[in-house]
Simulated assay, not measured.
Amino acid sequence: MSKLESTASSPKHDVFQAVADPTRRQLLGLLVDQEMPVTVISGHFPMSRTAVSKHLRVLADAGLVKERKVGRETRYRLEPEPLLELKRWLAFYDRFWDNKLAALQRYVEQADGNDDSQVEAPLTVVKREPAE
């Protein structure tokens, strides 16, 4: 496969860029349960249909929405699979916060059981690298 072919088949925008914008996150929310034409989608936003179409293009380039022509109308539907990349990335931080909250709980429980209010500092939690 040539460099040009591999570039053409890969997304122009990554999932993280696509979901960084609040409008695009709202668009994904609208498309969770049903396929919709751009005319209906644009009715949910205080912007032009052209602006909504540009946001949909970014989402499509990231693989998050698929387009389907029905007559003269283009309909859009959510493609959730690319969100798995985002989920995997966030999973590391879930573990990080779980560790921090557990350390806080131990600290508070120690403080409750100590009469003279001299409490040791919470345990240091070592961050783990995400598993690939």
Rank of each mutant, 00 (worst) to 15 (best):
Arg128Tyr: 06
Lys69Met: 10
Leu30Cys: 09
Lys12Ala: 13
Val70Lys: 14
Val15Ala: 02
Trp89Leu: 11
Arg77Tyr: 07
Asp14Met: 05
Pro130Ala: 09
Pro82Arg: 07
Ala131Arg: 08
Thr124Asn: 14
Ser9Trp: 15
Arg88Met: 15
Gly43Arg: 05
Arg77Gln: 11
Arg88Val: 12
Glu85Val: 09
Asp98Cys: 11
Lys66Gly: 07
Glu120Gln: 10
Leu31Pro: 02
Leu84Val: 07
Trp89Ala: 13
Gln26Leu: 15
Leu101Trp: 09
Leu64Gly: 01
Trp89Ser: 12
Val58Thr: 12
Pro80Gly: 07
Leu104Phe: 09
Gly71Tyr: 04
Leu86Gly: 05
Asp61Arg: 01
Met36Gly: 05
Ser53Phe: 05
Pro11Val: 06
Glu129Gln: 10
Met36Pro: 01
Asp115Gln: 13
Leu31Phe: 04
Arg68Pro: 00
Ser48Lys: 00
Glu79Trp: 09
Gln105Ser: 07
Val40Leu: 15
Gln26His: 15
Arg68Met: 11
Val32Gly: 04
Glu132Asp: 12
Leu30Arg: 03
Gln34Arg: 13
Met47Asn: 09
Leu86Ser: 10
Thr124Ala: 14
Val108Arg: 02
Thr50Ile: 09
Leu31Asn: 00
Ala91Asp: 14
Pro122Ala: 04
Val65Asn: 02
Asp98Ala: 14
Val108Cys: 04
Thr124Asp: 13
Lys69Val: 11
Ala103Asp: 03
Lys87Cys: 14
Arg72Gly: 11
Tyr107Asp: 03
Gly43Gln: 05
Pro130Asp: 02
Ser10Asp: 12
His13Lys: 02
Tyr107Lys: 03
Val108Gly: 03
Val108Ala: 07
